[in-house]
């Protein structure tokens, strides 16, 4: 009985698959939306890397568009101020909306002027997605610990694949970079990273290290590699600055 229900896998751990590649046959457990089924065969729909774990398949695409989900933490850029809300670019096909009611501003005070004073076009903000159902644009919130306008540090954008690996599998890499450079690093679900808290030089070093791991081959970069890299670059820069 077990023999029949076991899927036949055509891929190995860390294989790169392309659209149309056969992944498995039989009954397969997968949560990836990038795996599609035709009859009892499972195919990949993107260029990505497969991870096999006890007959379960996870597929990390090399590139993908960010689709908001409730409770995601995102770093947004204010693009427009409306009468009772802000339009926020969240690095996604869908533009986010931040209603006044989801900020510390009182709704009775809301005029375009007060809204503009509170958050202007071009401001970067750390927000949480509270609702998104594909029929309406994602609704964002500023109510919560740590959420709000970003006033210090730097924000960078990395590839979507690196972001999902840093978020879900290799948190230790981020922690190491933060520790080595004495900065605070926040990785948003929408592939934007906020680096803050250190001296400008240290922040730049953290960005350099993050860019260094932002390659398709990042799984082969070890923590000691990145520590060595930061120390090396640090020494170079300290020497230059006399």
């Amino acid at each position: 009985m077990n023999e029949i229900s076991k899927p036949m896998l055509y891929v190995q751990q860390r294989d790169i698959v392309l659209p149309g590649d056969l992944i498995a046959e039989g009954k397969l457990e997968t949560t990836s939306i990038y795996v599609y089924k035709e009859g009892n065969r499972y195919y990949s729909s993107v260029v990505g890397m497969v991870e096999v774990k006890d007959d379960k398949i996870a597929l990390t695409p090399m590139e993908h568009a960010y689709i908001p989900r409730p409770n995601d933490m995102v770093i947004g850029l204010i693009t427009d101020v409306g009468p009772t809300y802000w339009e926020v670019d969240i690095n996604s096909p869908y533009e986010g909306q931040l209603p006044v009611g989801e900020t510390i501003l009182r709704q009775t005070q809301a005029t375009v002027d007060t809204l503009r004073k509170f958050l202007g076009i071009g401001d970067q903000v750390l927000l949480k997605v509270i609702a998104f159902d594909r029929l309406k644009d994602p609704v964002l919130s500023m109510r919560g610990k740590g959420l709000g306008k970003i006033t210090v540090g730097k924000v960078i954008e990395i590839s979507s694949m690196t972001a999902s690996i840093l978020l879900f599998r290799k948190r230790s890499l981020v922690e190491t970079i933060a520790k080595e450079t004495g900065t605070a690093i926040f990785v948003g679900n929408n592939a934007r990273i906020w680096i803050s808290g250190g001296e400008p030089l240290m922040e730049d070093l953290a960005i350099l290290a993050l860019k260094k791991i932002d390659t398709p081959d990042m799984s082969s970069i070890s923590i000691s590699d990145i520590v060595d890299y930061i120390r090396e670059e640090k020494a170079k820069r300290v020497k230059q600055n006399g």
């Binding site: 392309l18 659209p19 149309g20 939306i33 990038y34 599609y36 035709e38 195919y43 729909s45 993107v46 260029v47 695409p61 090399m62 590139e63 993908h64 568009a65 979507s160």
Partner: peptide, 11 residues
């Protein structure tokens, strides 16, 4: 399209 990461059945 594949390079852009857009899901598709096959090339």
């Amino acid at each position: 399209l594949a390079d852009a990461g857009i899901p598709m059945k096959d090339l």
